[in-house]
Design a protein around this nucleic acid. Structure first.
Ligand SMILES: [Mn+2]
Ligand SMILES: [Mn+2]
Ligand SMILES: [Zn+2]
Ligand SMILES: [Zn+2]
Lengths: 159, 159
DNA sequence: TCCTAAATAGTAATTATTACGAATGGAGTT
DNA sequence: AACTCCATTCGTAATAATTACTATTTAGGA
């Protein structure tokens, strides 16, 4: 659980960045940001819609998707997750990376100075200018591994 | 341009791996693999469909998507690209990473021992077991930067 | 308060991907 | 060769995710 105070700071900071870019701070945008900033699970668009609707019952799908794109373009949220699944979102703008479980799609944060300070290979500098890095470690999470253990034993042969 | 010999080796190797998993080496699968192995541009499903159709005119969308999923699950091709765009595919199974232009979606390969040998943070080991890494450097490619230069000057004010 | 461009709601449309059911094909068998 | 069996494919329909449209509302500045 993220402390309320911290959530509100993140929301305020994000809106301030938006305002500086001439983007209005509407009720809907605020609530979408608040929802994201208060979550550690990197929710998808539909989940955000469902949750924000509890507070803003008339909010539309268009607004959700349009706002998520806007906030992403403004640099206050990020789009994460691998291509096999739907897009997931993240309001944590601290430099960090993700571990993704390929079984249940759980997404967890991790921090790594070594990875952040990674030198861009010359090979890449010749292709263009690098402006961002996306790192994703993929595997099986604790929970899914345990589930696999339990299911074991009753696999394979027929009676 | 990738030498034909090299393309054929990759196709043969991939099919061999599939066969070992009990997956038949059909005409369609062979052609899809050949198309991917011969390309350096990481094409999307539609592009692959169009190109393979020139050689196998009756091939269906279902076969394209089904086969791409199958080959990915078999580990002989990879899905690349960022969430904002459609899925792109890669038959290059050598350990490597990608630079993606956020303007034109060009995807280029790069190699980095340092990145490959990156130690998994303990933070992550506690979340689960890591089985793969996906690294993507994002920015603006040479071509797009030049285009932006040319367009400059005629921006901003009205007459 | 009043004004106006920007933003939203509700819905339709588009795009990418997956599913379905009938037909095909190839490996093994007689 | 004819027959069987089951995986695979084709053609098309369906689904899921995302984006677009337009009448109406609203934020924020004068
Ligand atoms: Mn995160
Ligand atoms: Mn590649
Ligand atoms: Zn899991
Ligand atoms: Zn480019």
């Amino acid at each position: 659980m993220i402390p309320k105070q911290q959530v509100e700071k993140r929301v305020a900071d994000s809106l301030e960045i938006c305002r500086r870019q001439g983007v209005k701070a509407t009720h809907q945008r605020t609530e979408i940001l608040r929802e994201l900033a208060g979550s550690e699970e990197h929710p998808d668009a539909e989940t955000i819609l469902t949750r924000v609707r509890q507070r803003v019952p008339t909010i539309s799908v268009d607004t959700i998707y349009r706002t998520l794109r806007l906030l992403e373009d403004s640099g206050v949220i990020a789009r994460v997750g691998s291509m096999r699944d739907r897009a997931r979102f993240d309001a944590n703008t601290d430099r960090h990376h993700h571990f993704v479980c390929t079984e249940c799609e759980m997404i967890g944060d991790f921090y790594s100075d070594a990875m952040d300070q990674f030198p861009v290979p010359q090979e890449v500098s010749e292709m263009g200018s690098v402006e961002g890095v996306y790192v994703e470690l993929r595997g099986i999470c604790r929970k899914c591994k345990q589930k696999a253990m339990k299911t074991e034993g009753r696999t394979g042969e027929k009676p």
